[in-house]
Design a protein around this nucleic acid. Structure first.
Lengths: 216, 216, 216, 216
DNA sequence: CATGAATGAGAATTCATTCAT
DNA sequence: GATGAATGAATTCTCATTCAT
């Protein structure tokens, strides 16, 4: 779990208030960033959108980039939360993986704009913040590694250990792909179709690959 | 083929000169955009980097966004060119697909920074230019569709027609994934390993999927 | 004596409290102004440094400039106090003047930073406050005029009356000079050396200048 | 001589133009700084005053502090130039010193506001620039050291070598004092009177002090 | 009396674009 | 065709001061 989220200093002491105001900021900024992108959104717009004066806004952040970090962090947390919730209701093994993938894809559909935002603006973050965001992404990927490993353990998935990490990334990316290729994919497939087909692709592999004839 | 590349107007009439100068601009701007991103690069920097004065530069473009378009267009053309070259030496059917995928991944490795650039800055293009760039992306995807179709035709690939498009996109994305997830993947896999494993994933599907029991 | 010290209005009625709080403010602000200058010091910093909240601080002043006035006034008072204390132990005539000058220089050394502060920030005061501060400076100069006059009276100093004022200013300035030229002087002279030499300069004049051949 | 004046980078290449524009800036800024002080003068005011747009102004400087440096440097150069001009017509020895002092004081009178400006704003300069400005001040002081030394050589001044530096500083300061104590001095003395009296003070010392009975 | 969150006018600086030479 | 000085709207961020609690 993310043990050391980058702390954004605030001039305001009251923790609850900080939480509340930053919530406002995230809500307002998210929309704007999705619509116009980070660089084309001005601080004044952000302030207006979230119902704060610029002065007040700057009591809770140190720079415009902090807002981007707050937003990216929020999105990742939200993704993680939703995915975890979904996975909670999910069994294990092959069956569980199928459901997990479906849930993941569903979350991607729901948070389409936000996932896209992360893809496009993460690099605008300052070094340190970017590292943290990438770490968060990795943690989410771990969730799928776990599922895969448990499936191997209970024998319903036949995957070599060295493939686990890659397969987890594949699951992540084939989900995200639904957001950043939607301009093409939506013309030909519904989410259900897409899910069925990609699941087949991923599961086939996880079923046929046997220890003995591992792909080096 | 790109039938209607967005024409960027130039004050200068001499076609050859326009070509030459824009070549300079693309070379200079590419590096800068990769290093600093589009928004953090100034027109002055671009001009300096490509050995033109700002005045002169503006004789060949109308706005900074034109440079981004030129760069994105160049990268896509380069990608297409390299991929086509690679595919030329490639056979057909299952065999050909394997080689094509490997070539595609190799090109991704070589043009890693550029592919990333496209992923992150395409959305900064004006509407029209963006559409054109996406169309270009689609065309490249078509190349794989072609290969897949020919493989189906000659019987070495057993894929349902409705899966072709998706599989082509999958090939594209699993290649690009090597660039935008390199921070994680390179720690665990070499390009060769990565290629072998992903090819197995993709080909398995293209071999096992039979007309009769098509995934709906 | 300063008959009409500019009154700084306070919201708080309790005189003692006002005195105490303003004491805190002066102590904190002095250091900050010396280190960073008046303009580069923020009210927040002042408040923090002196252990008050900004809200509370503003109960005792009306504007940031009031703090500067308070500080300047404090420094002048302190200078005057120390000088008077020193002069109290000092005899009269030539002998007394020598000691007075030495004490003055010693005070300058001790309050070096503060004297410098006054030199540099007095002009940042609002008109009225500045006048008052300059008057204070004049009063301190008077102290030396007094000493000079008494020396003339008792015959140990032979100075024409019209030179008295100038000589008093000279004493003041040659003392302050030790603060605002310390970057050069300290490299070549110790305070003792400096005092000896400057005293010689000043006293020679006060001894040789005779009524008859007054410098017009 | 100032061998390494801090170079202020300019975006504009044409040297002559840079010289001309900076001349405008200095003229405009000087007046404003004298009237309102550095911190209370805005960049827009400076730009307006010197007939440039802010954009254009920033082509010739990097920050507002650069303007202050330009101004301080200009004032010191002007002081040095005028003093050197004056000293050129001046003889040597006791006679020369007398004239030199008079010229110095005259320059102080003429440049009263500017000298005051330097006294008050030098500390607002960034470290490096401040060092350079102080060095310039020292160089001007050297001019008087030279005169004093030549006077010692030709026997018309009887001053111990170790007093030379201090005496040079004294001359400098008693001149500058006419600017920063003018609020008091002008009420009692004309410049001529002031010059006569201070010259007497300084020259007496330079005449009476003999090698044998040097003030330690 | 004390607090500290809120405010917004105002500050410095940047940078894409133009246009006279 | 080439140049680069000029422009000023736009942007981020600061900070003295107020006022409800």
């Amino acid at each position: 779990m993310s043990r050391n989220p980058k702390r954004i200093p605030s001039m305001v002491k009251n923790r609850q208030l900080v939480e509340k105001r930053r919530g406002q900021m995230i809500r307002g900024a998210c929309d704007l960033f999705v619509r116009k992108g980070f660089h084309k959104t001005t601080t004044r717009e952000i302030a207006r959108e979230c119902g704060l004066s610029i002065g007040t806004m700057y009591e809770y952040i140190q720079s415009k980039e902090d807002v981007l970090y707050l937003v990216c962090d929020y999105i990742h947390s939200e993704l993680e939360k939703r995915l975890k919730n979904a996975l909670a209701e999910t069994g294990t093994g092959r069956e569980g993986l199928t459901k997990a993938i479906a849930q993941h894809f569903k979350v991607m559909e729901e948070m389409s704009d936000y996932v896209l935002l992360i893809y496009q603006e993460t690099k605008s973050l300052p070094k340190e913040a970017m590292s943290y965001v990438l770490k968060k992404e990795e943690e989410i990927t771990f969730l799928f590694e776990e599922i895969l490993r448990r499936g191997i353990q209970d024998g319903t998935l036949t995957l070599t250990p060295s493939s686990v990490k890659l397969m987890a990334h594949n699951i992540m990316v084939l989900g995200q792909m639904w957001t950043f290729r939607r301009w093409a994919l939506k013309q030909h497939y519904t989410l259900e179709e897409y899910t069925r087909r990609q699941t087949a692709l991923l599961l086939d592999k996880c079923t046929h690959e046997e220890q003995g004839r591992e792909v080096q």
